[in-house]
Every structure is written in structure tokens, then in C-alpha cells.
Design a protein around this nucleic acid. Sequence first.
DNA 1: CGGCAACTTGATTTCTTTCAAGAGAAGTGG
DNA 2: CCACTTCTCTTGAAAGAAATCAAGTTGCCG
Lengths: 237, 237
Amino acid sequence: MIRPRSDAHCSTFAPQCFSSLSAPALRHFHSVAVCHYRDSHETLIREGSPASQVLILCSGRVKLVAASAEGRIFLLRVAGPGDFLGLAALLQSAVYRVTAETLDPCVIKSIPRADFIRFMTLYPDVGHSIAQTLAHEYNGAVLTARRLALHTSAAGKLASTLLDLARVDEPDNGPAPTNLPISFVMQLTHEDLGSMAGLSRETVSRLLTRFRRDGQLNQTLDRMTLNHPIQMEARYV
Amino acid sequence: MIRPRSDAHCSTFAPQCFSSLSAPALRHFHSVAVCHYRDSHETLIREGSPASQVLILCSGRVKLVAASAEGRIFLLRVAGPGDFLGLAALLQSAVYRVTAETLDPCVIKSIPRADFIRFMTLYPDVGHSIAQTLAHEYNGAVLTARRLALHTSAAGKLASTLLDLARVDEPDNGPAPTNLPISFVMQLTHEDLGSMAGLSRETVSRLLTRFRRDGQLNQTLDRMTLNHPIQMEARYV
DNA sequence: CGGCAACTTGATTTCTTTCAAGAGAAGTGG
DNA sequence: CCACTTCTCTTGAAAGAAATCAAGTTGCCG
């Protein structure tokens, strides 16, 4: 297991949405947040268990998944540095709604429920930042639902899933969706992609070869390039 | 168009999540919120347009839908009294992500973006309430995505959609999901149900008759009764 | 009564899943 | 360094399910 040499990194890390907080608020944050190190393939949060704390991911990637009784798996998204885990559950439902599993060795901070609530009600700006974070996550979830419901064909589901993945990496929020190739790091297996798009592993495999043949897609070792994003939106209903 | 006799109702209405606010905060709320009356089948919010205000539904029901370029429609949910419309868009993306259409004559309050942000940052409790509301909406959206992704069969998608609809009506948050019949008002057409569950209108029709034959479902004029909720979860993958 | 919207039901077609088998790459341990 | 296991990916064939196309019914409202 790889650990940072010291806590220097961890003690200063705060999520992006807290960048505009006052100094006292930030000090409060660092006083209640406890740092932890986790290996790959560890479970940080378990679906259905009581939401006793909120986690903040400092480094590494974390899969958020939901499982059905029959063993089927839905991959909601892959969280990265700066993301909150279990925030909505802590604020609302008292029970985590997804399972969080590390993909890499991770550094995380945890804040117990009571401490977090106190921190939030003490500083108005914190409430505001948290609300914005939640709004962002909400929009992501709505887009996911939309994707799953609106695309009838498997090709459409997979294409829009890939486009979403590509665009999350691009911090580019410009109003002009370009038709220039988008390239991004693909760390998901076909099985993962299938459980994001609601498709079987084999179908994903078949479709990717089809996209490649159609000239829409290029793949190197761990990168994926979408050659004509706009056409891709349109071509695969 | 049916309008209340006076503004008495409207001037005192505040969403449930504001019930614990201080008197000054509530007064502030009522001073910035403007009341409107809308007929059935009016569009309150349009997908893609800039999020200039947040709406609060006082009475009536509102459909939240997203449309694809091909004319396909996804019905995210039906909002009721006390619900916010456009909250996440206003806080995060600056663009509404869904279209809101009235189903009944509605009374709504609107608050311009700037006023709302000021209101929120002024009172810590407001930030907290808003965060909780967003957490609730987020969980709903995740459950919707989950439903669409995890159920392979059309029967499973429709059954879980109906169960969700039934349970939203029940304010019963008890940890014991009973197997007693659940009855609820069904104001959605087969087409609506189809666009919630990601199915065609005909498939919904066929499945409802099948559920009826299976003894899982009873329907009167505008009510629907799910006879064995737990079996229903299990039976239709 | 006419007209429209919602619903029902049947037949056909299309697509995805499932089952099956094998190839390639990566990691493990002797 | 090599044999072995495991995981991922690929591809084929068959079965099954939902969408689509089509036609007809019901019920409500003007």
C-alpha cells in the first residue's frame, strides 16, 4: 500500500467548493476532518447502512455502485479528488443509497454526522457551498436517468455514456459543443461500461468494435478518443 | 381558470422545509416571493433556458419532463405542493435541465435568482433547509436512474415505477415495508407511465392487464391498488 | 352525434440478451 | 524465466422480449 510520506498534503486539502470559505471556517473544517488511507478495492461506504459520516476524497478514484437483489450492478459514477461521498444520505435519508469502492489507493477525510451538521449551520457560506455541490450531483443524476430513459437502442445508450465520460474530464463548460475529437482516459472495463449504460458486457464489446469500424472511435492502451462527438450524438439514436 | 378568492392562502404558504425557520427569515421569504396563478397545461420552465428564478409550488401538480432531439420524452417526476422547481439549475448550471408543465391549475411563488441567493446566504438555516431539499431530490433522481438501469425486463421497470409512485404518496417512512395493499391516485396516462419507465405505451398497456390478471393490481376510475407490494418487487425481475 | 384521446389487442420485425467457446494480456508463484 | 491462473475482451449462434405497425374499442366532451 502506497502512503504519502507525511500528512502535509492531507492536512491542507479541502474540496474545491470550499475555496471561497473564510479562514475560521476552513480552520473549523480541518479540525473536524480526520484523514485516512485506503487500498485499492476497499469498501468505504455500504449501501443500506446508516449514514454516520460524510467522506471527502482527497486523492484516488472511487466507484459508486448500487446492486439489485438479483446481483445486477449499476455503476452511478466514478468519483475523483474533491468529491463528497455520502453527502445526500447524511443530510436526508439517514441511509447510504450507494456503495463506494476504491479503484486506486485513496486518501480520504471523514467527518462524523453531528460535527458536519454543526459545521454547516455555523457558517452560512458552508450551507451555500454544500447546496451548490448537491445541485451539481443532482444534475448529474438527472442526466444519467435521462440517458437511460431516452435512448432506446443500445448504441445510443453507450454513445451517450461515452460522451458524458469524455465531457466530465474536460473542464470546458463553454456553450459551444465542438465537433473536435475528444480524448480521455478510459479506466473502465467493458463490464463497468455495461453497468453504467444498462447493457450486457458482450453488447458493449460488440458496439465498441462497431464504433471503431464506423470511424467514430479510436482506442490506445488506456485512452479513448471520440472522433466526431456531434455526429455521435445524432447517429446512434 | 379557477383562482382562489383571495391571496390569503398564498401569502402564508411556505414550503415544508422552511417550517423551522425563524420569523425574520420567513418574513424575508414572503417579501421576495411573488405569487402567480397558472392554468392546466401551461409551461412554467423550459429545458435549456437560463435559470433566472426558482419556483415554489403552492397548489396543483406539475410534470417535470426532458425531451430528446428525436421527440422522445422522459418524465422525471410529478411535483406537488411544497416542491421547488428549478432549484438545482439556479444554484449550479445556470440552465434549466427539465421542462415543467402544469397538470392542474396551479398557484406558484417565484423568486428571482439574485434575491434567492441573498436570502440563502443571509440565514444559515435557509442554506441548511435548501441543502436538505436538494439531498431529497438527489436521492429521488438516483433511485430513478437505478430503477432504469437495474431492471432488465419491462415488467420490472413498470412494477418498480408503480411502487415508487405509490410510496411517494404514502408519507409513511417507517422502516417496515409492509405487504399490505397500497392504494394511490393514478393521474398518469399509459403514455406518461411509459415515459417514466422508458417503455412504449403499448407495452405499458399489456403489462397492466397482465398485472391485473396476476392479481397484483386493481384499478378503479382514478385509483390504483397494488395488492402485494413485496411480491411485486420480487416477482418481476 | 361526431370527434378526439386513451386504451386494448394482435401480428410482425428487430434487437439485445444469453449461452458458448476461445484468444490475449496480466499477474502469481515456483 | 516459465507455467498457470485469472481477468478481460471478442465473436458466433440461438432464444426471447419489446418495439413497431396496425386495427379496433371505449369513453368523454363539445
